[in-house]
Write a protein that binds this DNA or RNA. Structure first.
Length: 555
RNA sequence: GCCCCGGUAGCUCAGUUGGAUAGAGCAACUGCCUUCUAAGCAGUGGGUCCCGGGUUCGAAUCCUGGCCGGGGCACCA
């Protein structure tokens, strides 16, 4: 990657200057910073390193900059190198290098920007994992969008990624869910004396599901002993909810590699394994009738209940067994869990759990995103699954579309709390950035259609010298860096900004440069520009793909 | 009370881990369609980077003390 090569180049220049006596001897800084200048006319890359060296060398920064430029043997992709006050060195990419990128970008196609940052490491991204007690609501949308794009970005960065959904089918909530399902089913068959539990799920979707099951299966569950009926019917209802989640996520183009059942942690022995491991490590304590994980032994603020006094394992027990399964049984190098900020309190105990299992805590990353406030105009929409007052994910997808929803939810950093105004999202749908970006892609398709099958002869990319052409090329060449940034920070919102800027450069180019010329003497230029827009389309499609958005040919 | 995340243009938010004159989109205003899609382009206005103090060549960014908003501190998940 370009910044890395510049660092190496600069390091060599410093050493060379020292060897020749231009600079005094001093210890090389750990890192040579290479950044992007704020203003376009300063070039594409810059280093402020001379300011840092000024003290070590006891010289003026600008003087050091001039020495380094003289001793620099810049990489071939660099066109010009300049110094600037108070001590910057600015680099500009060479025009002929830029135009030479068109062919490799086209050749790379869908894999343009592919990095080897992950070196094939296996990483699991677990996301959404909402309780399977009803349809997915808007609260899960940000989780879904973040998780899927983080996964895609890591793939692009050279990791082998597995997408996983954790089905919480073993908790105490399940019992209530089963009883609710049973009551609604029985009610649908006229048993009005069956009541939904007070803490049960009041939503209309449960009524609907009860009716559907009653219609399809008749009264067969009423004929079973109650406990058996609860289990059988409950399982059926659970499967329906999970299938519904799968369908909703598929509407956003999200497909999982694995739907992991919490229940299997208990039937396949992982729970027993971690209990004996923790016991061996002397991390367990029994008091007040419950079994506790002694997080305080590892610096935690308080101990945590693993097995309740009624003998049932708690949520944390499943978490430990689940992560043992991920790291030890399935041997992932890294695991990323995407959680809402309401789970932030669990972060310390997860690290303590890793330590207790003898695993390096840095292999587990917990992405916490701030919750989304849903609004309709000025009104805040409260979300509660149990009162049934929910806005479902599906409703919003149908209202604003998958692409718009993904773009909006992705475009803010996970740390920022955000408002999602349903009215505004609808109202702005023609003026929103989603269409601006997609239009750039469609616009290129349109140009290519217009060019048709005419043979313009060989392309001479050296004819691409217009500032708008070069600006576009500079942006296209940046994608690998953006992927690097998004992958290393696990921050896919950088993709949205890049995509917008790329689209903007394409639109500017379109204004300034006519692609398909009818003049015979322009054919070499036309061929070159067609190559340019084809390559640009590859980049647009690639970044849209990483964001999980469609790249339409017609709008 | 303690812990986590925010506070940047009228609004919604970026700011590449400490660099140059703090950016973008919406909203407002002014222009541009007879040629590859005007879902586009060009331009204008808009700032106490929440408030003190500190660290250094240099702070929106780091440390510290406040203020405001959100979330969390269960044998719930």
């Amino acid at each position: 990657m370009i910044p890395l090569e510049l660092k190496e180049s600069l390091t060599r220049a410093i050493k060379r200057a020292q060897r020749h006596g231009d600079l005094p001897a001093f210890e090389m800084p750990e890192d040579i910073p290479v950044e992007r200048p704020k203003q376009e006319d300063m070039g594409e890359y810059a280093t402020p390193v001379c300011m840092q060296l000024a003290r070590l060398a006891r010289m003026a920064p600008i003087q050091i900059a001039e020495i380094l430029v003289r001793r620099l043997d810049p990489p071939t992709f660099i066109g010009t190198v300049e110094t600037a006050h108070p001590g910057f060195i600015n680099f500009r990419l060479a025009d002929d290098w830029l135009t030479a990128q068109i062919a490799p970008i086209q050749a790379a196609g869908e894999s343009y920007g592919q990095l080897d940052l992950g070196a094939g490491q296996r990483v699991q991204v677990e996301f959404v994992s909402a309780n399977p007690t009803g349809p997915l609501h808007m609260g899960s949308a940000r989780n879904a969008v973040l998780g899927d794009s983080i996964a895609a970005t890591l793939e692009a960065a050279g990791y082998e990624v597995q997408r996983e959904y954790y089905v919480n089918n073993a908790g105490s909530r399940m019992r209530l869910f089963y009883e609710t399902a049973y009551a609604r089913y029985a009610q649908a068959l006229g048993r009005t004396e069956e009541m939904v539990p007070i803490d049960g799920y009041q939503g209309p979707y449960m009524i609907e599901m009860g009716e559907q099951i009653a219609e399809e299966r008749g009264d067969e569950f009423l004929c079973l002993p109650r406990e058996e009926a609860l289990q059988e019917l409950g399982k059926l209802a659970l499967d329906r909810v999970v299938a519904g989640a799968r369908k909703d996520l598929a509407l956003m183009g999200i497909e999982y590699d694995c739907w992991f059942s919490e229940q299997t942690l208990y039937t396949n022995g992982q729970f027993d394994t971690i209990m004996s491991l923790l016991r061996q490590g002397d991390y367990l304590d029994v008091h007040d009738g419950a079994v506790w994980f002694m997080a305080t032994r590892l610096g935690g603020a308080k101990d945590e209940v693993v097995v309740r006094s009624d003998g049932t394992p708690g949520y944390f027990a499943s978490d430990i067994a689940y992560h043992y399964n991920k790291f030890v049984e399935r041997d992932f190098d890294r695991v990323i869990d995407v959680w809402g900020a309401d789970h932030q309190g669990h972060v310390p105990r997860m690290h303590h759990m890793m330590q207790a299992l003898g695993l390096d805590p840095s292999r587990l990353t917990l992405i916490l995103y701030q919750l989304v406030t849903l609004k309709r105009g000025d009104e805040v929409v409260r979300l509660s699954k149990r009162t049934g007052d929910i806005i479902t994910l599906r409703e919003v997808i149908e209202e604003v579309g998958s692409d718009a929803m993904r773009y909006f939810l992705l475009s803010r950093s996970p740390d920022s709390q955000m408002e999602f105004d349903l009215d505004l999202a609808k109202q702005q749908s023609d003026e929103n950035p989603v269409y601006y970006i997609q239009y750039a892609h469609a616009r290129i398709s349109s140009i290519l259609r217009h060019a048709g099958a005419v043979d313009y002869g060989p392309a001479d990319v050296s004819l691409l010298q217009h500032p708008s052409e070069l600006k576009l090329l500079r942006r296209m060449a940046r994608l690998p860096e953006v992927i690097h940034l998004a992958a290393s920070q696990l921050a896919p919102h950088h993709l949205t900004y890049y995509a917008y800027e790329l689209a903007s450069d394409l639109h500017g180019f379109y204004r300034d440069c006519r692609v398909v010329s009818s003049e015979a003497e322009d054919s070499a230029l036309t061929a070159a520009r067609l190559d340019l827009v084809r390559a640009c389309q590859v980049v647009l499609k690639r970044v849209l793909g990483l964001m999980g958005m469609n790249a339409p040919d017609v709008m």
